[in-house]
Design a protein around this nucleic acid. Structure first.
Length: 558
DNA sequence: CTTAGGG
DNA sequence: CCCTAAG
């Protein structure tokens, strides 16, 4: 794997960030904002529908064998499990004039960094990337600290070799991004920061991120800082004020001084300082910025966004949540965000908004929009849902797209919108009827509810990859630890509950037994009975069944 | 809430 | 997949 993969990596992902997994594990600061993540990743895989949902980001992938499926991940841990169809990738890269060298059968996504190559494990990754074994892969660790809370993240040193590339990568990311609102903001910041010397930038950098950097590259620093600042809406605005002012030397210096002074304080002081000292500008600019941020973020729900952060146990998550709260001062959104369990989170949000009747109506209206528009179903669904408040409902949308084998995205989206519409509206209706209109008999309510549920949860076929994940989960956590498995491997699939996992495992056991008997019976006959799952899977199931004898059923057979 | 187990 | 009982 050594040199060949390395070469491939260097060549193919020259404009892509590299990141060591060890760092990812320790430092959750990579949990950046969703729009960043999605936008960035989307660039590399434009042909994949990409979205974030339920606290995760997912890709809709197409595989000639599997059809459409959602590959998703919720944290660095899961990144390793993202598989992409090699052919599709090769094709894409070929279109981009890239040589894949046959190594792109696997795409690994880590911390906004897409690696092409055949990397499977952390160690393999490090090894492939040629990191010094004694070191924590210093030249792989690049940036991303800017999104974290102040102070507690150490920025590692960077090899000059990668700095340049990284810088270009980030900048190209910016320029080619489809989302222009934040990008233009960054550009403006860049202009300001451009006026600063490398030394200044270093200083500012260390102030912002609480760690020194050995990087002297102005571009790199500039961008890092700009992105870091961008995360603080207020500050960015302030910076914009600076930038928009006269560009005399004096002003530039003043800006630097102010910036430095400001950055030496706490985050809030920072904002205050800048706000107080900077030349004030029309406030509507700020509002417009916020408004446009809102519309931008409608691509990815803020709920998801923060949920993403909260998936992992981390201080930075809290920090990010706090940070987001300033942008999204919605109690509903932030209420359950500190929950690590995404399921809890989900439910809490649900419960919260259920209490607000207005929001229910809101949802209802949104969903009607979904139903009406075909081409724009998905879009309107997501956008509308964010106008009033952070309603959780749309989170399910992209998830449900996943396991379908239909070929048409729009149809999928539309169907899902409809599905949601039905379920939500019914729930809504239930509530209204049961609480407000007490005359309706309980029977009616019950039947209605039942009917709603029936329509809501149509059968979802388990994909082979899901089965494999389940097996992996069982082998890791053991039988009966369904919630653990759910959290670990199915956190992104909101439609697979722990109960579902349990049921599926039960079915797998049955199936494996059947498979075994069939095999014993006819050794020479139809060996290929439309195996959805390969023999190895059944072997694994049996092994695990032996290890963790499942209640009763497995005891009798195995 | 989570799990086991029956339907 | 749903439901329920038991912890």
């Amino acid at each position: 794997m050594g040199t060949e993969s390395k070469d491939a990596l260097v060549d193919e992902s020259a404009s892509i960030f590299l990141y060591s997994h060890a760092e990812v594990d320790q430092d959750l600061s990579y949990l950046t904002t969703f729009e960043d993540e999605v936008t960035r990743l989307q660039q590399y895989l434009p042909e994949y529908k990409m979205d974030c949902f339920d606290g995760t980001i997912g890709f809709e992938t197409f595989n000639s064998l599997k059809g459409f499926s959602i590959e998703s991940f919720s944290c660095a841990f899961d990144y390793d499990h993202i598989n992409f169809d090699g052919d599709a990738l090769d094709l894409y890269l070929a279109q981009e004039g890239e040589e894949t060298k046959g190594n792109s059968n696997r795409l690994q996504v880590t911390n906004k960094k897409v690696l092409l190559g055949d990397f499977r494990t952390d160690s393999a990754c490090k090894e492939t990337l040629g990191a010094e074994p004694a070191d924590e892969a210093p030249n792989l660790s690049c940036g991303s600290c800017e999104k974290t809370s102040l102070g507690n993240v150490a920025l590692k040193s960077h090899s000059p070799h990668f700095q340049e590339r990284d810088c270009h990568a980030e900048i190209s990311n910016l320029s080619s991004s489809s989302e222009t609102v934040l990008e233009s903001a960054r550009d403006r910041d860049s202009l300001l920061l451009d006026k600063m010397t490398a030394q200044d930038l270093c200083q500012v950098f260390s102030r912002i991120f609480g760690c020194e950097t050995s990087v002297k590259d102005k571009q790199w620093l500039k961008h890092r800082i700009a992105v870091g600042l961008q995360n603080r809406g207020e500050l960015v605005d302030s910076l914009n004020l600076l930038e928009s002012g006269e560009t005399s030397k004096a002003d530039e210096e003043k800006a630097v001084v102010l910036l430095n002074a400001a950055l030496s304080g706490s985050a809030s002081d920072l904002t205050d300082t800048l706000e107080n000292q900077l030349i004030s500008r029309e406030k509507h600019v700020k509002r417009m910025r916020l408004a446009s941020c809102n519309s931008l973020k409608s691509v990815s729900s803020p709920v998801r966004e923060v949920g993403f952060c909260s998936v992992n146990k981390s201080n930075t998550a809290d920090a990010l949540v706090t940070q987001k709260q300033t942008h999204w001062p919605t109690g509903i959104c932030t209420k359950g965000l500190q929950e690590q369990n995404s399921r809890y989170h989900h439910r809490k949000c649900r419960a919260s908004y259920k209490n607000a009747r207005d929001e229910f109506l809101n949802v209802k209206i949104q969903k009607q929009h979904c139903q009406k528009g075909i081409g724009t179903a998905q879009l309107s669904c997501q956008e509308e849902s964010l106008k009033g408040s952070c309603v959780q409902v749309p989170l399910d949308l992209p998830v449900q797209i996943g396991e379908s084998t239909k070929d048409n995205h729009l149809v999928n989206d539309f169907d899902n919108c409809k599905d949601n519409e039905v379920s939500v509206s019914d729930e809504d209706f239930d509530r209204e009827t049961s609480s407000a209109d007490s005359q309706i008999s309980e029977d009616d309510s019950v039947t209605r509810r039942k009917r709603a549920r029936k329509r809501k949860q149509h059968h979802r076929r388990w994909t082979p990859s899901e089965v494999m994940k389940l097996i992996e989960g069982v082998s890791k956590c053991g039988v009966g630890k369904w919630t653990h498995i759910k959290k670990l491997l199915f956190s992104s699939s909101s439609h697979r509950t722990s109960v579902n996992l349990k049921d599926k495992w039960r079915n797998l056991l049955k199936a494996s037994n059947n498979e075994m008997q069939k095999k014993r019976k006819v050794e020479q006959g139809e060996t290929q009975l439309s195996h959805q799952l390969s023999e190895s899977i059944w072997c694994q199931v049996r092994e695990l069944a032996v290890i963790y004898s499942y209640p009763r059923e497995s005891k009798s057979k195995v």
